[in-house]
C-alpha cells in the first residue's frame, strides 16, 4: 500500500513539474542567458561576430548613455519616495480614520483605475495637460491665463505621471500591513503623551516596513522599466533608459548593444531590490505576497 502510494506521488510530481520547468527554463532562464551572450558579441572590422566587451565599453564612453541611466535610476528612486509619501496617509485614513463601513467602498474605489490600461490613463493626462487641454481651457476661462501654456513634455509632468501610474502598487500593500496594526498600540502611545510625529515614526512606520518594502520594490521596478509614460509625457530631453534600449533594438537594429543595455538595467534593478531586501531583512518570497 505504502509503496504504491509513493509511486502515485511521483507521477503527480512529474505532471506538475513538467509544465512549470518548461515555462521557467524556456521563457525565463534560457532567454536571459542568451541575452547575456548576445551582449558580449560584436562585429569586428571584417564584419564577423566576435566576443568582446565593446558594447559595455560604449555605455561608459558615451555620456548620453550613462547619463540617461543615472537619470532613470535617480528619478525612479524619487518616484518611489513620492509615491510612498502620498500613499501612506491614504492607507492610514482608509484603515484607521474612516468609518469602518466606508472602508470596503474606498478600497474598491482605489483599485478601479488600476484595471484600466496604462495607455488610457496616460492619454487622460495628455488631454488634461496639453496646450489645448482641459486645464488650460479652464484657466483661460477664469482669466488666470492669457494664453495657454504647454504643461506636457517636461520632467515634472513625467514624474507626476509615473507616480500616478504606480500609485496603486504602493497603496495596496500599505493597506495590507496597516490593517494588521493593533489600534491599542496607537491608543497606548497617545495616552502616554506621544504626539502625532512620534506615533508616526515610532509605531506606524516600523510596523509598516514589510508593506513599504514590497510596495517600493514593485514601484521602483515598474518605474525603471516603464516605457509608455516617459515616452508620451516626457519631453525631448527627458530620455528614459528603456527608450535607449528600444532605439537600439527597433531603430538602429543593433541588438548586441541593446542587449548590453538591457542587461545593465536588469542588473541594476536586481541590485536595488536585493539591497532593499537585505537592509530591511526581508525575503523576496515573503515580500511578493
Amino acid at each position: 500500500m505504502k509503496a504504491s502510494r509513493k509511486h502515485h506521488f511521483q507521477w503527480t510530481l512529474a505532471f506538475f513539474l513538467t509544465p512549470v520547468v518548461l515555462w521557467l527554463f524556456l521563457l525565463i532562464v534560457l532567454p536571459h542567458i542568451d541575452l547575456l551572450f548576445m551582449s558580449f558579441r560584436t562585429k569586428d572590422d571584417s564584419g564577423s561576430m566576435v566576443w568582446s566587451f565593446s558594447n559595455y565599453m560604449l555605455f561608459f564612453k558615451e555620456p548620453i548613455y550613462w547619463l540617461t541611466f543615472v537619470r532613470t535610476v535617480l528619478y525612479s528612486i524619487l518616484v518611489t519616495f513620492l509615491t510612498f509619501t502620498i500613499a501612506l496617509p491614504v492607507a492610514f485614513y482608509i484603515t484607521k480614520v474612516s468609518r469602518p463601513r466606508y472602508q470596503v467602498f474606498l478600497t474598491m474605489l482605489l483599485l478601479l483605475p488600476f484595471w484600466v490600461s496604462e495607455l488610457v490613463r496616460v492619454y487622460g493626462w495628455m488631454i488634461l495637460l496639453r496646450e489645448s487641454g482641459v486645464i488650460n481651457h479652464f484657466l483661460m476661462k477664469t482669466g488666470l491665463l492669457d494664453k495657454p501654456i504647454e504643461m506636457l513634455y517636461n520632467d515634472v509632468t513625467m514624474i507626476m505621471g509615473l507616480v500616478y501610474t504606480s500609485m496603486l502598487f504602493m497603496v495596496v500593500p500599505l493597506i495590507g500591513v496597516l490593517e494588521n496594526l493593533d489600534d491599542s498600540l496607537i491608543e497606548a502611545a497617545y495616552d502616554l503623551g506621544a504626539n502625532m510625529w512620534t506615533i508616526l515614526f515610532r509605531i506606524i512606520i516600523p510596523h509598516a516596513v514589510p508593506g513599504i518594502v514590497s510596495g517600493s520594490i514593485v514601484v521602483f521596478m515598474l518605474t525603471l522599466g516603464d516605457y509608455l509614460t516617459p515616452n508620451l509625457m516626457g519631453g525631448k530631453n527627458s530620455l528614459w533608459f528603456t527608450e535607449q534600449i528600444y532605439n537600439q533594438f527597433i531603430a538602429s537594429f543593433n541588438w548586441n548593444q541593446g542587449s548590453a543595455f538591457g542587461f545593465l538595467l536588469l542588473a541594476l534593478s536586481s541590485l536595488v531590490i536585493w539591497a532593499g531586501l537585505k537592509l530591511t531583512n526581508q525575503k523576496l518570497s515573503k515580500v511578493v505576497k
Partner: peptide, 18 residues
Amino acid sequence: IAPLVIPGVILGISILVF
C-alpha cells in the same frame, strides 16, 4: 517569482533574442 521583478521591457527583448 522572478518574472514579477524583471522589468517587462527586459522580458520582451530576452524572449525576442532567444
